[in-house]
Design a protein around this nucleic acid. Structure first.
Lengths: 238, 238
DNA sequence: CGGTCAGTTGAACCTGATCAAGTCAGGTGG
DNA sequence: CCACCTGACTTGATCAGGTTCAACTGACCG
């Protein structure tokens, strides 16, 4: 783990519109710059935090990709999400002052460390920030509802199609292509997230390819027929 | 829907320790009494709020039982949780000022209505309340992680066992028996929550019964061998 | 150039879904 | 009060989607 003390200003960060509230007054903007104490770089395969560790901070991802995962007492584990630049992780730790999942970088990453005490103090004073924190947590709850729907009621093809559409949509919101992207995660990680085995993920992607819906070369994905994917997620006839 | 304007004081509510922060100063406690605007009764099968409705308030359940469910564009739906006295619902609405799921009473219920604006204003001033709101949202995120683990990696028997243990544990925390309780939901609702069909739920419960782990008479459940259930959830050998 | 890890593909198997029939409890109306 | 109806539940038989096990390919790296 590497901690950088380089001062970084949210006010001049290109990702601000993703992690910070919009429409702040100049003086509020200035106060927000106190929020991030340090940055931290996390190399591929390293953890940002682990189940059981003391919770102190939320983390805003500046670059790179993370996965979060929970484990049951016996060895099984479940990927609960993939997070990219501009997203906030660590919310699970707030309830019991202790993290309940692992956050692992799946490619070299850099995060902004936001000590939670500071965040709470500041959001008592800056209403827009308070609102923003609530929205971030609520958004995570809604996202997880979607995953529950996926895991509880969708078939393999539907899960994969929904997964690909979700990824490309988030990447597009960050200025990347609307149709091409690189998978940062392995088939096994995708499978763990979607409640499938890696073989089923592989087979299903192959099927999408032979149906002419996507082109896949290793980790490189090109979505040829986005409507085809959408039809798979929401079959027209019920 | 019936709205009661009877003034209710959180400060004198028996459920306070469940929905409100502990260790408040007397003056803080007094201010908290401003939080609940009204109570509302919801009959069985009626909804407290629906997907698409404008979000205004969080609701603390005073009595009764709810389920929350999300729906995909085609008809499928997924129960995302069962909520009982002392629990807070409505958090999904915060992100977009609009509810994204339905909350349906599965038995006659009464809730305390907490206008969210008021809650935000008050939590800017009462630090313990601010912290409490954060904890409630974080707790929900952690709960959903658990459901994702369940849906993504457990087999039918494990899901049912985990479900029964979770229910009885929450009921016991509310002063009910450690081993007996009434199921408030149908087999179909349980199945939707656990990603199973109602037939599988029924069969699996029958199996538990013939294994001497539980006794079931209609909706009445008696857990005979809690350790047996725990062993099913966490098989000793991996 | 060999070793390792990720991914693909095939074949057999199994868990849980689906379809179907029948039971049971509770409520309603004659 | 009883016959009937309905919704919830149970149980059986069959089916299928996805898992499991296994073999193989290909990319990457020391």
């Amino acid at each position: 783990m590497k901690v950088q003390n380089i001062k970084v200003a949210c006010s001049s960060c290109t990702l601000r519109e993703l992690c910070m509230p919009a429409g702040l007054e100049p003086d509020e903007l200035k106060r927000i710059d106190e929020l991030v104490s340090t940055r931290r770089t996390v190399r591929r395969r390293e953890t940002l935090f682990r189940n059981g560790e003391r919770f102190t901070s939320l983390y805003a991802i500046r670059s790179g990709f993370f996965k979060t995962r929970v484990a049951s007492e016996d060895g099984r584990d479940q990927v609960t999400g993939f997070q990219m630049a501009g997203e906030i992780i660590g919310l699970d730790g707030i309830v019991n002052d202790q993290h309940t999942c692992d956050a692992v970088a799946i490619e070299d990453a850099e995060v902004c460390v936001m000590p939670f005490q500071r965040l709470e103090a500041l959001s008592r004073e800056v209403t827009a920030l308070q609102r923003h924190v609530h929205q971030i947590m609520s958004r995570e709850i809604v996202r997880e509802h979607g995953v529950m729907l996926l895991l509880g009621s969708m078939r393999a093809e539907e899960r994969l199609a929904a997964f690909l559409l979700n990824l490309v949509q988030r990447l597009h919101a960050r200025g990347f292509s609307r149709s091409e992207f690189i998978l940062r995660m392995t088939r096994e990680e995708i499978g763990s997230y979607l409640g499938l085995t890696l073989e089923t993920v592989s087979r299903t992607l192959s099927k999408f390819m032979s149906d002419g819906i996507v082109e896949i070369d290793q980790r490189k994905v090109r979505i040829v027929d986005p409507d085809g994917l959408r039809r798979i997620v929401n079959p027209p006839g019920g």
